[in-house]
């Protein structure tokens, strides 16, 4: 059974922050088409603070890190993304055992709690053109892939590719939740920015697991 070490978990968030930072204007532009043009800026601001907070925090446990990330995102991102990522990461933290290293199954279980928190708070289902269009199928996939140490990196790379494809798939959808929903049919033809930042999270996960 593979594990998730604290250093890998921190690496994942560092990579996620970098990906969002590099793609800040891509995310803002996607948001401009169907929302209010600031998804990249908001996520970038929060993730920069979250990584800062992690770096300043003494090594403790994944759970403490996840809680710190949740609290930081909730108080710095703003908007729906801040509420979802923030409260989701708090549930993620609560589902983890308090240890510097957890099993892969623990990590996947905590991710399940995160996704459940998103569902509850955001009330979006698959096909609503939101971040759930990445997280819901990814959850199914990651649970099906409880793989061994050796195959994990490759399967996470595959998952990251799928996540990108699921995000691309939001292009054809008509938004039913979030600010893009106000556009109705006009929201079709544009990728949902929240789904793309979510896909970046899986890209970061694949990168961090590959380094482990």
């Amino acid at each position: 059974m593979p594990s998730m070490k604290q250093v890998t978990f921190r690496d994942l968030w560092q990579r996620f922050a970098e990906l969002v930072h590099e793609n800040k204007s891509v995310l803002n532009d996607l948001d401009a088409a169907i929302g209010d043009a600031d998804h990249g800026s908001n996520m970038d601001r929060g993730l920069e603070k979250a990584v800062e907070a992690l770096n300043a925090s003494p090594e403790g446990s994944l759970r403490a890190d996840a809680k710190l990330i949740g609290m930081t995102l909730m108080s710095t991102v703003g908007g729906a993304s801040g509420a979802l990522w923030g409260s989701g990461m708090l549930k993620f933290a609560a589902a983890l055992p308090d240890a510097p290293e957890v099993t892969w199954a623990d990590f996947v279980n905590a991710l399940g709690a995160f996704v459940e928190a998103l569902s509850k708070r955001g009330q979006a289902v698959a096909g609503d053109k939101t971040m759930m269009d990445v997280f819901l199928p990814a959850m199914v996939e990651i649970q099906a892939q409880l793989s061994d140490e050796e195959s994990l990196p490759a399967s996470m790379v595959r998952l990251a590719d799928q996540a990108k494809a699921w995000s691309d798939g939001t292009r054809d959808l008509v938004a039913k939740r979030g600010r893009a929903a106000y556009l109705g049919e006009r929201s079709a033809g544009h990728i949902d920015p929240g789904s793309l930042s979510s896909a970046f999270w899986f890209e970061a996960l694949a990168g961090a697991v590959g380094q482990q």
């Binding site: 909730m74 703003g78 908007g79 801040g82």
Partner: peptide
């Protein structure tokens, strides 16, 4: 007040 066009956070 939140950031421009962004809801304020719960603590605020």
């Amino acid at each position: 007040a939140g950031e421009v066009f962004t809801s304020p956070t719960p603590d605020q």
